[in-house]
Nucleic acid binder design. Structure first.
Lengths: 203, 203
DNA sequence: GCCATAGTGGTACAAGTGTACCAACACCGT
DNA sequence: ACGGTGTTGGTACACTTGTACCACTATGGC
């Protein structure tokens, strides 16, 4: 076999995908160019056409790749959520989940919203973002039910969309201390309202 | 004066802005080109450079224009909200507010989210989306307080962000009967939870 | 009538674009 | 050692892009 060569090629392919994702966040999906991707990834121009048959292929694969990568972090979120026993803890777990992305990985986070918007234009991408949202809804529904939600599926969708909207609000114009002073209290309030308590049910 | 000439010019300027906005929704802000805008607006290529000094100027003005146009519809929303006396009515008014945009004006709606995303890239645009969100929060806070919300400002922000997230979810992958079967019940549930009743307080 | 001027529309051009092509290269099974 | 195949990187080319430029028209104040 030619395992070693293939592995090296695969690594380069990943580097191109990562660079594409960074640029999607920084410039927008529509402004991607082969040359910009090549420079960001540190590969010659021809490498981008060698691994991807066209520009739209490249962008589509990059966004798919982003969705799949994020899906793995959802597993970690699910694990953390099995431990929570109050709305306040629930809110903290959710808020922490996004904290790392609000820093250096901000461009990646922006690219997630680009996926949604691109889904509005190219139906092939719509499935990606739908799968993404469904994954979060599935993970949030169980803990919500356990905390006392009467309609956990619907409430999970509400929490997920609210979470998305809140993060988008922060992305579109950063606020100091967003995560601690705005996001977490709001999620706390939201979840507490949904599970039917004015304070933590553990009290 | 040269009123008539100026008026005709202004009309053409508006046509260019409208065409730009449509294309921002259809292609994305980064994929806008002078030629595409000119064709969409039905004007010669040179008209786009005559009225706007550069491409980024054109896009910025188009997004600003969209935000200001939307602000006018917020006034109508505010008026409708002064009439509501239950969470269910509140939800209906909100759901109706977006219905028209989900149809033919869908590209315009998409462009609104482009503003947020562009705000993450160009700080000059961040102010626009922040003003936009603040306007909605201000309009929703009063009715929420009247319905029994203990923290109307915070709850208004929650409702606005959730509303944004819900509409984005629909945009990224259309669902049949979204507005009636998904959006309205979810908003109903959300608002009822926030104002602290499991059913309408008027009952 | 006349002319200044806002507006119009055609064209030009350098820079940047996607993509094709091709000569080298490194590695591995034989 | 060797030939082949996956990979590399350089270059070419037709096309699109943003923007500048210019001849032209129509309008309204004089």
């Amino acid at each position: 076999m030619t395992e070693a060569r293939r592995a090296r090629g695969e690594r380069r392919r990943q580097a191109i995908l990562d660079a594409t994702l960074t640029l999607v966040g920084r410039l927008g999906a529509g402004a991607i160019t082969h040359r910009a991707v090549a420079e960001e990834a540190g590969v010659p121009l021809a490498a981008t056409t060698y691994y991807f048959s066209s520009k739209s292929d490249l962008v589509r694969e990059a966004l798919t790749h982003a969705a799949e990568t994020d899906r793995q972090t959802v597993d970690g979120l699910a694990a953390a959520l099995t431990q929570v026993s109050s709305a306040a803890e629930f809110a903290t777990v959710l808020a922490d989940h996004v904290t790392e992305w609000l820093g250096p990985g901000r461009a990646i986070l922006v690219s997630h919203y680009e996926i949604s918007l691109e889904g509005a234009r190219r139906p092939e991408l719509a499935a990606i973002s739908r799968t993404w949202t469904d994954g979060y809804v599935r993970v949030l529904a169980e803990p919500l039910r356990r905390l006392g939600s009467a309609t956990p599926e619907r409430d999970a969708w509400i929490v997920v969309t609210a979470f998305d909207g809140m993060v988008l609000d922060e992305l579109s114009g950063p606020q100091p201390g967003f995560e601690r002073e705005t996001l977490r209290p709001a999620l706390d309030r939201l979840i507490q309202a949904l599970v039917g308590g004015t304070s933590s049910p553990s009290q």
